[in-house]
């Protein structure tokens, strides 16, 4: 069979399913990371000494340990801790859903990077803007929604764009713990048919497509959040 026939015979569809799975994992992990990051950033900026120490420890350790090692450690720790907990309260150990584990593990990694991006963005807001809002008597939540959030976005979007691209690329590492996303399915396809070069190239092209479309989308988003600001350069 030729390469095209192999792709048409069902492997092509499998790869596309894998790409969708990769997108789902990345998107949910990215969102989880953003939620962790938002609380992390607010904790670092407004929290007490202990909160700040803990968050510093989290971001420093996660950002200096290789992602692959971190994913393997978190996956192993998380599934084992959950099963120990289940056994200790009298349930049988379960097989943990690979999808949820993948999202949780990647999300915790993303959270550390998001924390730093969002902290930097919030700190870049001219302090006078926040003081003015306080002087108007805005309660904290309203201040966050009306001032902090829209004012920080232009500073945050470039970093967040990078993080999303990293999330899609790091999701390939999830294949080592066995979840069927694009890379794992490609491994099966390539190993099963011996068409290594073609299948990995097709997978690479799908990842590249995801990256290019994302870059375009984030470029548009960047223009939107910068509306009304003078053009850079």
């Amino acid at each position: 069979m030729s390469g095209w026939e192999l792709l048409a015979s069902g492997w092509g569809v499998n790869l596309l399913v894998g790409a969708i799975s990769t997108l789902q994992i990345s998107a949910l992990a990215y969102l989880l990371g953003l939620v962790i990051g938002l609380f992390g950033a607010l904790g670092k900026l407004t929290g007490g000494k202990i909160t700040r120490r803990l968050l510093d420890g989290y971001t420093t350790i996660v950002r200096s340990v290789p992602e692959l090692l971190l994913i393997v450690i978190l996956y192993y720790t998380g599934t084992q801790a959950l099963n120990n907990l289940l056994v200790s309260i009298g349930y049988d150990p379960i097989r943990i859903n690979g999808f949820i584990a993948a999202v949780a593990v990647l999300g915790v990694v993303q959270g550390a990077y998001s924390t730093e991006v969002l902290r930097g963005a919030i700190q870049a807001i001219p302090i006078g803007q926040i003081e003015a809002a306080k002087a108007y008597g805005m309660p904290p939540l309203l201040l966050f929604r009306r001032i902090t959030l829209p004012a920080m976005l232009p500073y945050a979007i470039p970093g967040l764009s990078n993080l999303w691209l990293n999330a899609t690329k790091d999701s390939a590492l999830i294949s080592v713990v066995g979840y069927l996303e694009l890379t794992k399915i490609t491994q099966q396809a390539a190993g099963g048919t011996k068409w290594y070069f073609m299948f990995y190239t097709v997978a690479g092209a799908l990842y590249l497509l995801i990256s290019l479309v994302s870059l375009k989308a984030f470029g548009m988003l960047d223009n939107y959040v910068r509306r009304g600001q003078p053009k850079v350069r």
């Binding site: 691209l165 899609t168 690329k169 790091d170 390939a172 590492l173 294949s175 890379t183 490609t186 491994q187 390539a190 011996k194 290594y196 070069f197 990995y200 190239t201 997978a203 690479g204 990842y207 590249l208 990256s211 290019l212």
Partner: peptide, 17 residues
């Protein structure tokens, strides 16, 4: 725009085969 893992597999399994 592509994961390093895929690049490595293209070279190792692709070229390697």
């Amino acid at each position: 725009g592509t994961p390093l893992l895929i690049q490595l597999y293209i070279l190792y399994y692709g070229l390697g085969s």
